[in-house]
Computed example of a mutant assay.
Amino acid sequence: MLSDIKIILVETSHPGNIGAVARAMKNMAMHRLALVNPKIFPSAEATARAAGADDILAKAVVYDSLVDALADCQVVIGASARSRTISWPELTPKACAEMIASDVSKPSVGVVFGREHSGLKNEELDLCRYLLRIPSNPEFSSLNIAAAVQIVCYEFFAAQAVVEESRIGDKGESPLATAAQMELFYEHLHQALLDIGFMRPERSNTIMRRLRRIYNRIQLDTKELDILRGILRMAQDHQKS
């Protein structure tokens, strides 16, 4: 399970935090680190703070955008300490780890951590299926990013020992859709809803954000995604005729 989890840091401003995250990951036998537009990397300070986890830094992949970093992920989880006006399905680190550990399809997972001072933007959380919140003192809830990663990685490490192998119904014959496949679906859905006159362009952002919440809750697999896109194509063709 641990090899299927990618820790993703968005626009990290302090290179020492990258090194500390690498150390936290290696403590918990995790090695997939992705960096989206880090301010400074590589860095001697990151290497020093890694304290022996240099191999994690050496294999870290730098991306220009979060969309690119998530392209191969089937389950995307965004970590945030801030409350949001639009609700996402929320998980604690323990519940998140248990959910992933019990999934026999062994999905590729991306766990996204935002900027040190401002976290993730709403449009970045739009790419996430779940919101991960670490229970803490409500009067002082902001954690150092390395501390937050350490807590989350520990729960994943601990959960692998209690994996449940039973699954009712669907046995996971079709793999879960990746983030890249879901983005293509959302683009298709947006265009189809405009084509059939369901929504106006000026209101499309609000409606699409709500629709993302719906589809992100259900964990579509690739076969289900093909069916939905087939329905969209038929609706578009019917509108043209």
Rank of each mutant, 00 (worst) to 15 (best):
L189S: 06
P138N: 15
P89H: 14
I100D: 01
V152A: 05
I207S: 00
D64N: 14
A148I: 11
H190K: 12
S174V: 09
V10G: 05
M28C: 01
F140P: 03
A180P: 01
I134C: 13
T92C: 05
L2C: 03
L176R: 08
S204W: 00
M208I: 03
A53L: 04
S108M: 04
E187A: 14
Q160L: 07
L193K: 04
K171M: 14
L211N: 02
L131C: 12
D4K: 13
V109G: 07
Q150H: 10
A95L: 10
L66R: 02
I214Q: 00
A58D: 11
L57S: 10
A53C: 05
N137C: 08
S105W: 04
T85Q: 15
V67H: 09
V104W: 02
V149L: 08
D221L: 08
K223S: 14
S3T: 10
L91H: 11
D170H: 12
N37Y: 01
V111M: 11
E183M: 10
L57A: 09
H188L: 11
D64F: 06
P42M: 01
E90N: 13
F185M: 06
S108C: 04
C96N: 09
K121Q: 14
A24W: 07
Q236E: 12
R84M: 15
T12S: 11
Q236Y: 01
G16M: 02
L228G: 04
R82A: 14
A95V: 07
D226Q: 10
S141H: 12
T222Q: 15
I218E: 01
F113P: 02
S105N: 04
P89C: 08
L66T: 06
N205F: 00
F156G: 02
L232W: 12
I134D: 12
I196S: 06
A58V: 01
M182G: 02
P175Y: 08
G78C: 09
G52C: 06
L184C: 07
I40F: 07
E164H: 13
N205L: 08
G16P: 00
K94V: 11
I231L: 15
N17C: 10
M30D: 00
G197M: 00
L57D: 07
I145C: 07
S136R: 13
V61I: 11
D55L: 02
R84C: 12
A192F: 08
S136P: 12
V62M: 10
V76N: 05
D4H: 11
R167H: 13
M25V: 01
Q160P: 02
E183I: 10
E98T: 04
I168R: 13
R32P: 00
V112K: 03
I145N: 05
V163G: 01
G19N: 09
G78H: 11
I231R: 04
A235N: 07
V109L: 03
D126T: 14
P201K: 00
M199D: 00
S136C: 14
Y63F: 15
Y130C: 11
K6Y: 04
T222N: 09
R84E: 12
A44S: 14
S141N: 15
I231W: 11
C153T: 12
E164V: 14
